[in-house]
Nucleic acid binder design. Structure first.
Length: 271
DNA sequence: CTTTACGCCTGACGGC
DNA sequence: TGCCGTCAGGCGTAAA
């Protein structure tokens, strides 16, 4: 479910409610996530006060002073802020309960998400250590992409979805950014010119920024920390629009599976 | 090294 | 209504 904009939306939603809050209790009612939540998870956190909530790629990093915990939302995960503790429902895996009576609740039906406790520097944790640059940073630019793409034969769409190339670009925004920059998703990554990579970089930054501004994309079930959906789905130009008219040329948007993922593009506008 | 295919899961939806 | 196949915002892993 969540790509970078949805994770950032979640981060912004929970941050003001949890920073400065002291954790009095952590309840893990279902440890079955992508990796089992260890028994040591709760005692590591309890008693600490939340210092900050940061994001790296699609991971949320919660600093509790004594260490950090990482949260990944997988395909179907969400975090909610509860003003008061209410009865848990299906797939409510974890509650982090605060001294003031509020709580942060993690729900994940498909269980592709994860929670990790990290001693030491989280940037060196194995999940984060090999990640590429943040898409909204200066380090992500045309030179970086063009140089990395040399000799790569695989489709450019797969290339930009690899987290070692650039983080946070998932299946929706990859299709959108390629449409905006006029690049066919199936074109070999090594056969995209530097100039066109410059346009792709701009398109990725623009698409992600705009999506963050409106709270991300809700296709079926993404909600922010208050339970509200994101509105970027209304602005999607190609994703999920196969058969509809291209907003630029009017020809039908096509859908094709590339790298085992559905991809949407305009056969006329994208080369 | 890069690239590909496969699981891991539940739930929603469309067709019959 | 009910059943069944298909598909879904991710990504680690094994294998080619």
């Amino acid at each position: 479910m969540p790509e970078l904009p949805e994770v950032e939306t979640t981060r912004r939603g929970i941050e003001p409610h949890v920073v400065g809050q002291r954790v009095t209790k952590v309840v893990v009612r279902d440890r079955r996530l992508r990796w089992p939540v260890p028994e040591s998870f709760e005692p590591s956190i309890v008693g600490n006060t939340i210092v900050s909530v940061d994001r790296r790629a699609k991971y949320l990093i919660v600093d509790v002073g004594e260490g950090h915990f990482l949260i990944h939302l997988g395909m179907s995960g969400s975090l909610r802020i509860l003003p008061t503790l209410i009865e848990p429902e299906a797939h409510d895996h974890v509650d982090v309960i605060f001294e003031n009576g509020t709580a942060m609740r993690y729900n994940d039906p498909r269980r592709f998400g994860s929670m990790h406790w990290v001693d030491g520097n989280p940037a060196e944790h194995w999940l984060l250590a090999e990640l590429g640059p943040e898409p909204l940073s200066e380090a992500f630019n045309a030179s970086w992409l063009h140089d990395l793409a040399r000799r790569r034969k695989g489709p450019v769409k797969n290339f930009i979805m690899q987290q070692s190339v650039v983080v946070g670009v998932g299946n929706i925004y990859a299709s959108e950014a390629l449409f905006i920059s006029g690049i066919h998703p199936n074109r070999p990554a090594g056969r995209v010119s530097r100039e066109r990579y410059a346009r792709l970089v701009d398109a990725i930054k623009l698409t992600l920024s705009q999506a963050i501004e409106v709270g991300g994309t809700t296709l079926r079930d993404f909600v922010d920390a208050n339970g509200a959906p994101g509105y970027f789905s209304q602005k999607l130009k190609v994703y999920g629009r196969d058969g509809e008219a291209c907003v630029e040329c009017g020809r039908a948007i096509r859908k094709r599976v590339i790298g085992q993922r559905s991809s949407f593009f305009c056969p006329t506008c994208q080369r």
